[in-house]
Amino acid sequence: MQTVIEIIGWVGSILIVWSLTQARVLRFRWMNFAGSVIATAYNVLFEIWPFAAMNGAIVIINAYWLTRLYRERHDTDVYKVLAVGPEDPFLQHVLATHAQDIAAHQPSFAARAMSQDGRRATFLITRGDEAVGVVAVRNEGAGTGLVELDWVKPRFRDFTPGEFVYRDSGALKQAGFRRVEIDTHEALDREYLRRMGFQTRGTRWVREL
């Protein structure tokens, strides 16, 4: 029995350490929460009160942040969509800084071509003063826009902040679009597109605004 308890204690410790390697905020909080719950129970069982108190405090802190993160994930007062020009220096800085990650998820997107083409509308998704995502839409005429980039920082990928561009569609309508489309490709997150209100039409996903 004691061996089983010790294994459980090790699992808690491993989860806490492993959580520190996670880039995604939500994944980090859940793993740290689970590990600290196990560690608290383990230390209480063996009456190691200083560590029980420390881990108990960590449980409370993680519970607070998990509650706040879930409460804010769809909050338009927390996430904002800013329409910026394709050549905006800060936008170009964000794209250059995360070029490798963007290329891994949407290799067909070219930031340099975007900055030289006035037919694209670009939107920064922000949380406070931090840019967390970019959506770039190419104007194909007749009120139709082709989404060429829908990218979010790894830290915020569990929250799908791209929804703030599509859900209310205010920014897209103000840019002159009545419909947005996305080409089908292997890496496409179809479940995400369905949640955003897109439907399949031929080789593209379409959302009427």
Rank of each mutant, 00 (worst) to 15 (best):
M1S: 04
T3D: 05
V4D: 11
I7P: 10
W10I: 10
W10A: 05
S13R: 09
S13E: 11
L15N: 01
V17F: 11
W18T: 07
W18A: 08
W18K: 09
S19R: 05
T21P: 08
Q22M: 12
A23K: 13
R24S: 14
V25H: 03
L26Y: 11
R29H: 04
M31G: 12
M31A: 05
V37L: 11
V37K: 06
A39E: 04
Y42G: 01
N43E: 10
N43S: 07
N43I: 09
V44A: 13
I48Y: 00
P50H: 14
P50Q: 12
F51T: 12
F51V: 08
G56P: 05
A57H: 11
A63D: 07
A63I: 06
A63Q: 08
Y64G: 06
W65C: 00
W65T: 00
T67F: 12
T67G: 15
T67I: 04
R68E: 13
R68Y: 07
L69P: 00
E72M: 12
V84Q: 06
G85V: 13
P86F: 06
P86K: 09
E87P: 00
F90L: 15
F90E: 13
L91T: 11
Q92T: 11
H93A: 14
V94D: 02
V94S: 06
L95G: 06
A99L: 14
A99N: 15
Q100A: 13
D101G: 15
Q106L: 15
P107W: 03
P107G: 13
A110G: 04
A110C: 03
A113N: 12
A113R: 11
M114W: 10
M114F: 05
M114E: 00
S115E: 14
S115M: 12
Q116G: 07
R120K: 09
A121W: 04
T122C: 15
F123T: 06
F123R: 05
I125P: 00
R127F: 14
G128Y: 12
D129Y: 10
E130R: 15
V132M: 11
G133P: 01
V135R: 00
V137N: 07
N139C: 01
N139Q: 03
E140H: 04
G141I: 05
A142I: 03
T144M: 09
T144H: 03
G145R: 00
L146D: 05
E148Q: 09
D150T: 01
D150Q: 00
D150L: 13
D150I: 04
V152Q: 00
K153L: 09
R155T: 10
F156N: 07
R157L: 02
D158Y: 01
F159W: 07
F159T: 13
T160I: 00
Y166S: 10
Y166Q: 14
D168L: 07
S169C: 14
G170L: 15
G170S: 10
G170D: 02
A171Q: 07
K173S: 15
K173T: 11
F177L: 12
F177Q: 07
F177K: 02
R179Y: 09
R179P: 10
V180E: 00
I182K: 08
D183H: 01
D183R: 04
T184K: 04
T184Q: 10
H185V: 14
E186R: 15
E186Y: 11
A187W: 08
A187H: 05
L188K: 01
D189T: 08
R190F: 11
L193D: 01
L193W: 03
R194I: 02
R195Q: 14
G197W: 12
Q199S: 14
Q199P: 05
T200G: 08
R201A: 05
R204Q: 14
E208Y: 00
